[in-house]
Every structure is written in C-alpha cells, then in structure tokens.
Write a protein that binds this DNA or RNA. Structure first.
Lengths: 398, 398
DNA sequence: CACATTACGTTAGAGACACGATGAAACCCA
DNA sequence: TGGGTTTCATCGTGTCTCTAACGTAATGTG
C-alpha cells in the first residue's frame, strides 16, 4: 500500500504539466498555470525539473507589443526520445514507434507462432526493426507499451487469454527483463481506450465506453476519468451480451451473443450465406463502399444489434460518448445509422443526457496506439490510477 | 479547481485514522499504522490533532505481559457530538440522530406538505424534536446530511425531482443558512450506497450496485471505491430499464419498465388484480411471511424481472455485490430466490467472477442512514471524491 | 541487579505544496 | 527620459508528509 508522499505529488504534477504541453502545444508558465490549475510556484519548480530532464526546451519569446515582461515559452523537445507501442494478436504482432507527443515515426508488422516464446521473439525483432528503420537506438527509447487481447492482472500478467491460448503468463516481467526501459502491458481494448483519452477523440471526456472489434468484440469502460475494470477484471466484456433470444450459436457456447453477429468471421459467415465471399472487415467495408446492397443490409442488421447493446450501456452508465474502434472501424460508417436509430428508439431513460456514438480517431490501429499510450504512462512513471482526473484536479468541496 | 495542498492531505489522513477507529474499534497508534498504511510519524501527528479536537480519548494500557513499552489506546469519544441524518420523500420526512460512530440515538418521523418551504419547515422541526428528545443541543451537532429522491447537482442543488415536483432548488444552500453546522445534501439512493460502504454490508467492497425501492426504483453505482454518477448524473437509473417487451404501461410513458412491476404501487396494483388488497411493501411482506401463495407468486415473478436487470448490470459492471435496500426490503426475502435463479440463468459471461445479491444492513432505513453518512463526510470536511480509496490508498505502481 | 531486548511513540531533517511578496523585463505616458 | 504600470517568474515562510534516528517503558537474562 503506497502512501501519498511528496515525490508522488511531484510526479503527478510533472505529468500534468507535460500533458498540458503535449495537448495544448508550447506555452508559457503563466499559461500552464491556467491550463493545469497549479500554483505558479509549483509550475516554476516543475518547469525547472523538466528542463533539467531535457524533456522541454525554453525559448524567450520576443515582445508581443503588450506591456509586461515577455513570457518564456516551454515546448516539449520531441527529439530527445521515442515511445514504442505494440500489439499482440493471435498470429500477428504490430509495432508503432512515435515521438514523445505521440506522432508516428515508424511501424512494423509481422506474423508469429502461437507460443509465448514465438510471440515475444517476434515482438523483440519487430521493435528492433522499427527502431533500425529510423536509426534510433535504445538509449532514446523512453518506454514500451504492449496491448494484449487477454484478461490481465494489474501487475501485467496474462491471467487468461482464450484467443491466444495463454494462461498465467508474466508478460510484463519477461519483457522488462529483456529490455532495460520501462515496460507496460495491458488489455488491448483498455489500451485503446487509454489512447483515445490521451491522443484521440475522447481527449476531454471523463465518461465513455470503448467498443473494439477484431476477431472478437471487446469493451472497456472509462468512467469518472479512469479505466474501470470491475471486481474481477470483466467489466465491459460486452461481446457475449445476448442480443437475440435463442439466436445464433456463439463460440462461448451460448446463443445470440453480440459476437455471433458482429465479429469478423461471424459477419463473414452471415455474408457467405447470402452469396458474398468477404472474409475480413476491410473487404466487407470495401464492398459496402461500392454499394453492395446485400452487404449494406447485413451491416444494417448488425448495427441494429450493436445499437441494442449500446442502448443498455447508455441506460446504465450515462456515458458522454461511445467510441467504436479496431478492425471493425472498416465497417463502422455503415453500422452507425442503424446504431443511432436503435439507440434513439430503445435508450429512453425519461430525461436522459444525450450520448454520441463516434468512430475512433485511430480506426484499426487503436490498439497499437494504445500501446503508445501505455508507454507514455510508463515513461512518466504514472500508474493508471494516477491519471484519475478527480484525484488530480478535485472539484470544489461540497 | 482545487489543489492538492498539505491541508487537504491532512484532512484526508485524519479521516482515514478516524474511520479506522470507527470501524475497527479502539487501537494503539502502531495498530493504526498497520490498518491505515500511514507512516508512524503521520499517525502520531494525526493522533495529536484528534486529541486536540477532543474527538478521541487516550488511555494508557496496562502491560500485557509482553516485552516492550505498553501501547496507548486511542478511542473515539462518542459523547462529544452527534450526527444528524434525514430523508425527504413526497409527503414524509424522517430524521435519525446518531453518535459519531453511527449508532442510533433518536429518530423522528412526520408528514409534510408538497412545497419546498413545507418540507424544510417540517425537516427543521423534526431535527429539533429529535435532538430535544435526547437533550442534545446544536453545539453538539457536528453535521447534518439529507437524502432526497431527486437528480442532484454536485453542489447540493435539486436539478429535477419528479416525485417531489421540484426543480432547481438550492437545497444545500437553504439548509446551510438555517443551521450553522456543515450540511450535505445528495440523492437518496446515492446516500444509501454511501451508508452501506461506511456502516453496512458493503464496508470493504470497492464495486457494488445499490438498488433501492420506495415509490420508485432507484439505483446507484459505487465503482472503484467511489460513487459514479455518469456524465449527466443519470448513471444507475435502472427503474425504467425495459424488462418486458410491450409490457405494462409505466408512469414514464413507456411500457414494460422495471418500475411498472416492482415499485410499491405497481406491486399493489398487480396484487389487487388477483384479489389482494395490500397497499405497501410492508403489508405485502407480512402477507408473504404468512405464506399467501398468490403474494408469493407475484413476488416471484417480480423477482425474476429484477433478476433480469441485475443480470445485465453484472455483465457490464462485474460488481462484487448487489445490495437491495429501501422499503423494498420488506419483500426482499421473497424476491431473492427468483433473482438468483434468473441471475444464474442469464448472467453468464463465459468466465465470470461471482456476484452476490444481498439485502441492505439497514433495510427500509437505508436512506436515512445515508443521511448520517453524508453528515459524517461533512463533519470530516470530506467531499465525496476524497473517499476514493484509490486516491487514498493507491496500489503498487505498474 | 545491571544491561540487553523488544515494542511504542516522538523528534529531526529533507522534499513538496500554497500563499504572499519580491524581482525582472517589457510597455506607456507625461 | 524617467517613473508608473503590467505581466511573468521566482523566493521566503509555513505546513504537511516521509525517512531515519532517537527517546521511552516495559520484559528478559547472566
């Protein structure tokens, strides 16, 4: 049980200032006082800290014609390091190298065998390849983050990953001993949600639900300014919500699950029944873009079912937005009308605040970007709970 | 935007020590170090603070036969003050006066007219009456908390209370100017959830859902160690979840809502159709206890519908427990079997952690006790977000 | 019976924050 | 041209936390 000591507060405030600079661009200390809500003296100390670390550069601004001392602008020095994000899926590994502010610099993709060792070797090779491509050494890597399609413990262990066929794998530990930089590992959909709050469409949103579709349908809840995982880590696992009584059989053994209608192969199977040989979301999206009416019909039906699940989520959680992400993104434009139709029809708490359903800023790459988000947290020495906006910026007292 | 200053940390730590003493009983400083996770030096300073405030008494313990300096025991001095909790409902006001550790000392109940002024006058009179009954003056009242069946803003204003017929009422402000002690006002179901975490069945639970039934069915979500309200304050409003397609008409204008089957008058109406003239949950509970098979059947049906809603909640939120409270408590024993049957049948995320459904420790008085909980927070100068266990006792870093 | 051992609580020092005051660097205007 | 004003950043003081060392009061032990 960790205590709320001064060093922790300093880390928190350093992160607040860093994020303010990252999101809002270069700023003077006075502007940072406004955007972070910190005391000028604190900003001054944090600014010195960041200067000493070499993370920010200071440039004297010329006079702007106004009275008063001209400000000294702080800016993140993106050249002093990179973040590495990665994603493990069954059979595939993706790597994304970005600047310290999350701008992409290099990507890599490769296929891996089914064992943990295979995957880790491939991942390590991919990271080396991506770094080599842009001539960046490990001395410039500030942190690595990895998104995994599995139920994770808080310490970065894979508790159970049915798609990968893994159980009880100390992933964070194994990667940390391989690399000498901070390593963060988390569930892929949670990571995608994190990326959305750090870099994407949910940047100023405190309450949203992330729904990511790849081989399965995953959900993550970001509530009250932080990820919510539930008492056993299952919160937001909406792939097996029942949407059709006695409906199609699902891989989980039950019937009528959302996944049995919206997952990639489920959608492909449904289209195959109607004479369309389209195996991937990408191919289905292309056909939809071409105006294939059968494809459009199937997507509309799937969208209506997704809308039913979203309606239930909205009724219970009252989120500000719902973000759709992952490979599913390829077909989202043709799901959305049915989703919104169903939502308007079914989610009708008598006097409800309005919820928007939007597509992720990163589309299919949301999870890989999530790896970068995990890396950024790790680079700032910030465990997830510290990003809690309530703890960081409490509202006025009652 | 408030800052994380030393004074706030002190308030937090004072509250942590106080709650440790309240829950765990008298303890030495060393025991408090263990139970709160604070540093011995901090506990020492906090203990002096509490002694100076007169909130705790210290008694030198005799030697226990073990080596070492004998400890000095700290104990909350329950005689130095009282907490006042209250509950407003349409037409009725309840007041509960307790010691500083939440033990009841006096209760009062009365009826009030429909206007805000009526209710506040009745409330004020009731508090005076309850205090008078035990001969306690206002100088001993540390704080007052009030639970209200309405959508509340964070500042204690009634935004919308359909059952009361109120809108935009600055309730906290009006009560605070009447009394010169701290006053906290909040939604009744949220308050009941708070009481359950402070005094009741959910004391060590970080994730649970409170479902309270009175004239309507209300829900509150306590997630990750704190109340979650949603982006518009509607989170957990489960009364109008649809449980029967095209079912009975509900007061909200829709059909098939849970409230249309489980609310007090809905249940009464359903029983009237079958020849039973039972107007209240209490009367229905009595009949059920007597073994009236018609009543038992109707309750079983209602329990199945409630179970369906709970199943959805469990699938999305993965809570540790569900707590049923309010006047509904009178019939909970005859709802539970059907609830659990339905839950086992419907909530079956493939590999889900188990969720218990339990009755509130305070039954029909959960909301009044919630008022006491609000008062306790106010007495410790603790706005709700400060009780966040993550902010207070962060887990080890990633 | 003197001294070690054990357990409990407090004090001393360093780091961090907030507040208020001070220093720094421009503009403005008589 | 020189003082006043405005704006930006830093410094000094007080409080709080944590770490580490110390004081205090009992029991054990040769």
């Amino acid at each position: 049980m960790q205590r709320l000591n001064p060093a922790l507060i300093r880390r928190l405030n350093v992160a607040r200032v860093f994020h303010a600079l990252r999101v809002g661009g270069p700023a003077s200390q006075t502007e940072l006082v406004r955007s972070t809500g910190l005391d000028p003296a604190t900003v001054s100390a944090v600014a010195r800290h960041l200067r000493d670390e070499g993370l920010v550069t200071t440039t004297r601004q010329p006079s702007r014609g106004r009275a008063g001392r001209p400000p000294t602008q702080l800016a993140i020095d993106a050249s002093v390091g990179v973040l590495v994000g990665a994603r493990l899926e069954p059979g595939t590994v993706r790597v994304l190298v970005t600047t310290l502010v999350g701008e992409p610099r290099a990507t890599w993709q490769g296929s891996a065998g089914p064992t943990v060792d295979d995957a880790l070797e491939t991942l390590a090779g991919g990271v080396e390849a991506a770094l080599g491509e842009i001539g960046v050494g490990w001395d410039q890597v500030r942190a690595v983050g990895v998104g995994v399609p599995a139920l994770m413990s808080l310490s970065g262990r894979v508790a159970y990953g049915p798609n990968l066929g893994w159980r009880h794998v100390p992933l964070q530990e194994r990667l940390a001993e391989r690399w000498s930089v901070p390593v963060a590992v988390d569930n892929d959909t949670s990571a995608a949600a994190l990326a959305e709050t750090l870099f994407g469409a949910a940047r100023d949103v405190r309450d949203f639900v992330m729904i990511a579709g790849h081989s399965g349908i995953g959900g993550a809840l970001y509530l009250g300014g932080r990820l919510y995982r539930g008492s056993g880590g299952f919160a937001g696992e909406i792939g097996h919500a029942r949407v059709v009584d006695g409906g199609r059989r699902c891989s989980c053994g039950d019937r009528g699950c959302l996944e049995a209608y919206l997952a990639e192969d489920a959608l492909a199977a449904r289209l195959a029944e109607r004479g369309r040989d389209l195996a991937t979301y990408a191919a289905i999206g292309t056909a939809a873009a071409d105006g294939d009416t059968v494809v459009l019909e199937v997507l509309d039906e799937a969208g209506a079912l997704l809308g039913r699940v979203i309606a239930d989520l909205v009724d219970v959680l009252d989120p500000e937005v719902i973000v759709l992400a992952g490979a599913l993104s390829h077909v989202v434009p043709w799901l959305l009308p049915a989703v919104e139709r169903t939502l308007a029809d079914e989610a009708l708490g008598a006097y409800r605040s309005r919820c928007r359903v939007i597509a992720s800023s990163f589309g299919p790459e949301a999870v890989t970007m999530g790896g970068v988000g995990l890396a950024m947290e790790a680079a700032l020495s910030l465990p997830g709970w510290l990003l809690d906006q309530d703890a960081a910026m409490p509202r006025s007292a009652t």
